[in-house]
Design a protein around this nucleic acid. Structure first.
Lengths: 254, 254
DNA sequence: AATAATCGTTAAGAATCCGTAAAAAAATAC
DNA sequence: GTATTTTTTTACGGATTCTTAACGATTATT
């Protein structure tokens, strides 16, 4: 199973940027976003949690290696430097500063794509939590998401989620504590040619809740943020001490 | 603290080989061994467990990609291909077949060293255990995979797996506890010109299960993760105390 | 309070996936 | 060269899973 991966392209030259974006979108497996300045790049890298970053070194506002370093401060997303600079010093510098690969312009498209796949392969096996397919578990309360087994357990019991259901829970688990908008979920789950409405999502959520929640009508692990999206809790719902929102509006009797 | 890393250099040209070996030894952090044929390389890779392999594609006795594949059958040591071949196809092929990087000759020494450090950085975070294959046996429950004898035993009795069947079980055993996607299995088993669908895999699995499972319809050693791949258990299926999935949703009557 | 929009639930058909059997092709042994 | 084993291909039924549509319940809006 594979999520539609998100790739961030950082490149100031419009022609090159569009070429890269077009190339990646053409593959059909990637969700592509792009930035043309270092500042934008940092913002996007932070807010969108891409699975791979393609980074040009020659940006207008800041040095590429600064971008490298600032991203590396909080993330270990694979970064492939794509640069016209040919000097050995530049390459070594980039690789030493946290880049995972260095591809020289002019770009060989198939090679770049192959190297992206290698980067994804790596992050899939690494214990780094910027990527979804971790080799560890995510636990919250009685819920355990085992990314290696592709299974979700409740109280140690297999919830028997289907492939898509697992994918969805895994995705929400990765962003536990924050709301994922419907659109984002759908695009990640079903890729570029996803259905327009969130009908499928609702059905899936019903089935998931039936399997992992004690009382599906009053979920404690996956909440609905009305009009926005879904959110998985990052606190143990059984823990009373937590800071979760207490209902200000009393529930109806029954 | 850092351990001294072992690097295996596979290169038939004496001058280049000595240059590489000298270069790496000069750094002072590496323990370098070398081979000049594919056959020797496999033996050394097997007996010495290097932390990184530098691989030349143009070997006298066998194709470089064969070496790649045969090493990848039991190990996920980082492999950096160092080749004079410049064609995009060669690069893509190597990267697709399990290489982690591709450096073109003539060699830029500092760049190569930087890329070696990147490879080591990666493998430090990765969660793959290559040690099983080298340490003779893998045991789980009544199943024993003997990697030396190329045989699988159930309750001490040889299961009489064929070569392909063994290869498949061995692969799954190496990643016990974790799902291997169909694609990955196929690529590892049949290499670059593998069949597109997983039909063969299904047939093989049927035959394997008939040989190692008491009730092939309800396997206890190799599970199917619907829509994803196969997974070998890492717990004794006879041990009740474990945290294995117990079906929460009761099976249909009959 | 009435209306509209959103969300949860159910059910059913379509599509896909998986396991199995058997035949064909290839490899190996004799 | 023939026989045997192994591998690959072909075919198909059953089971699971995905998707769509319809409808009731809930929430937001006027």
């Amino acid at each position: 199973m594979e999520f539609s991966c998100k790739i961030l392209v950082i490149e100031d030259d419009p022609a090159t940027r569009e070429m890269l974006v077009g190339l990646l979108e053409e593959v059909g497996k990637y969700d592509v976003i792009s930035a043309e300045t270092g500042k934008d790049a940092e913002i996007l890298a932070n807010s969108h949690c891409p699975d791979v970053i393609l980074l040009d070194l020659g940006l207008p506002d800041m040095d590429g290696s600064s971008v490298l370093q600032s991203v590396r401060e909080w993330s270990c997303v694979p970064i492939i430097v794509v640069s016209a600079r040919t000097s050995e010093a530049d390459k070594v510098n980039a690789l030493e500063n946290g880049a995972d690969d260095y591809v020289q312009k002019p770009i060989c498209t198939t090679e770049l794509l192959a190297r992206i796949r290698v980067a994804l392969r790596h992050s899939r096996n690494s214990g780094c939590n910027t990527s979804i397919a971790l080799n560890s578990c995510f636990k919250v309360g009685r819920l355990v998401i085992d990314y290696r087994k592709y299974r979700v357990f409740v109280d140690g019991v297999d919830a028997n989620l289907t492939q898509n259901e697992f994918k969805l829970v895994a995705l929400l688990g990765q962003y536990a504590g924050q709301v994922l908008p419907y659109e984002d979920i759908i695009r990640r789950m079903w890729g570029p040619n996803a259905p327009a409405d969130n009908q499928i999502l609702r059905v899936n959520m019903t089935n998931i809740r039936r399997k992992i929640e004690k009382d599906p009508a009053h979920p404690r692990y996956i909440f609905t943020e009305n009009g926005v999206g879904y959110r998985m809790t990052d606190h143990d719902p059984d823990d009373e001490q937590e800071d979760t929102p207490v209902c200000r509006i009393p529930e109806k009797a029954h």
